[in-house]
């Protein structure tokens, strides 16, 4: 049966990436329940589009669909942070001069604090960090998943890192 073969081929290709898909959805929706829902829906959509999949990077292909499903979900639930996040020029890239204490602070950052700081980032910055630092994707792969240029990937990533460091410094700096 052609359908069974398609499903088998699909499962063989896609199921190894379900963790990555769920992880991205979990970071973007910020809750388990919706992340599962979005991941399942994205996999079904991927299955429908599977005939059109040309081969190549399956993880990036799946994550592209997951990301789009997440943004649809964010829009439907009005969880997309204000338009401000799309203005990439608002926030300055001021880099702290006193690196050494910062390195110390970062070295002491615990998982919970990191999680909260990352969750507080606007979605487009959060996804840049997740794809780069958690999924270990290249700029090119991130550009494909997020449908933006390499330059945009670089600037989002730079801003995301700066904001993350500022937020961690603000949280952990007080404690030390």
């Amino acid at each position: 049966m052609a359908e069974a073969t398609k499903q088998e081929r699909f499962e063989h290709a896609v199921l190894p990436h379900v963790d990555a898909a769920y992880s991205l959805a979990r970071w973007l929706t910020r809750n388990d329940y919706d992340a599962q829902d979005v991941t399942q829906e994205a996999c079904l959509r991927a299955f429908r589009f599977f005939e059109g999949y040309q081969g190549g990077n399956m993880r990036a292909w799946l994550l592209t669909i997951v990301r789009n499903s997440c943004y649809t979900w964010l829009q439907q639930n009005r969880r997309l942070d204000s338009a401000e996040e799309f203005d990439e020029e608002i926030h300055s890239d001021s880099v702290s001069d006193s690196a050494s204490p910062e390195v110390q602070i970062l070295a002491n950052a615990d998982k919970q604090t990191l999680q909260r700081a990352l969750e507080d980032l606007p979605a487009i910055f959060r996804e840049a960090i997740v794809l780069r630092e958690i999924e270990g994707m290249s700029y090119k792969e991130i550009a494909d998943v997020a449908s933006v240029s390499l330059g945009t990937v670089m600037s989002r990533l730079a801003r995301a890192r700066t904001r993350l460091r500022q937020s961690l410094e603000a949280t952990l700096g007080k404690e030390s």
């Binding site: 769920y22 979990r26 992340a35 880099v95 690196a99 390195v103 970062l106 950052a109 990191l114 960090i129």
Partner: peptide
Amino acid sequence: ESQRALRAALQRGSLAYAAP
């Protein structure tokens, strides 16, 4: 050095979620 420290922290935190 700072950026490496941030990366190390993120990796140490093992922030990937596994599918339930």
